[in-house]
Computed example of a mutant assay.
Amino acid sequence: MSYDNPPPPPPPQYGAPVPGAVPAGTNKKAIWSLVLGIVGLLCCGFIAGIPAIILANMAKKEIPARGQGGNGLATAGLVLGVIAVVWSVINLILALSGNGIYDFEFNSN
């Protein structure tokens, strides 16, 4: 037996992370798609809704390939982005047709 080389390290315990392995975590694009979907619903419509849809689709492709979490966040971001875009289209059509303008002026005759 040679004393020049140290013995190998013991194997990791059951359920312990493998040394040097990085945990997968949540996909950042899924988080941002959800954030942009919420912002698109609240105020920005097209400006935030379209990037939310794009990021959600990109995240749905990356999540299984990288073994990350966040599939539900990506789905929620996709749904909210679609709703934001549809809502913006409806508001745009109503505004252009003159039916989306509300006048709260009262006439006292």
Rank of each mutant, 00 (worst) to 15 (best):
P11R: 05
G67V: 11
G98W: 11
G81Q: 02
G72A: 13
P11G: 05
L36V: 01
G72E: 12
V39A: 14
I101C: 00
A30M: 04
P19H: 06
N57E: 04
N99W: 08
S88K: 14
I90V: 15
A95S: 14
P64N: 09
L36M: 12
S33H: 01
A16E: 15
A65T: 12
I93R: 08
P19W: 07
L92A: 15
Y102Q: 13
V39P: 00
I93G: 05
P6T: 08
N91A: 15
I50D: 01
N71M: 14
A59Q: 13
P64R: 05
V89L: 15
I50Q: 07
I93F: 10
D103H: 11
P10I: 02
L42T: 08
G45C: 11
D4F: 10
G69D: 15
L80G: 04
I83Y: 11
I63P: 04
F104L: 08
F104Y: 11
R66W: 01
P19C: 05
P23V: 05
P19D: 01
V86H: 12
I63H: 03
A48R: 00
L94N: 13
L78N: 11
I53G: 04
S33V: 02
L94W: 11
G72H: 05
N107T: 02
L92Q: 14
I54T: 09
L36R: 04
I93D: 07
A52G: 04
E105H: 06
R66M: 12
K28E: 15
L55G: 01
C44L: 14
L36K: 10
I101K: 12
K60N: 10
I50N: 06
N107W: 00
V79M: 12
G98I: 02
T26N: 07
C44A: 09
C44I: 07
L96S: 06
C44H: 00
P17V: 03
Y3T: 15
A95H: 14
N5W: 03
V18Y: 08
N57T: 11
G70K: 08
Y14C: 01
P9F: 08
L80Y: 09
N91G: 15
Y14E: 15
P51W: 09
S108D: 09
G20F: 06
I31Q: 05
A52P: 01
G25V: 09
E62M: 08
G45E: 04
G98A: 09
K28L: 14
L78V: 02
P9N: 10
S108K: 09
V35P: 00
A21F: 09
I31Y: 07
G70C: 02
I63W: 03
R66D: 12
A84T: 12
K61T: 10
G20P: 00
F106H: 12
K60E: 13
I38H: 06
G70E: 07
M58Y: 03
G67Y: 11
M58F: 05
L73S: 03
K61H: 01
V22W: 06
A65D: 14
V35D: 07
V82Q: 05
G67C: 03
I50G: 00
W32A: 05
N71H: 11
G15V: 10
I54R: 01
I101Y: 12
G37K: 09
E62R: 09
I47D: 00
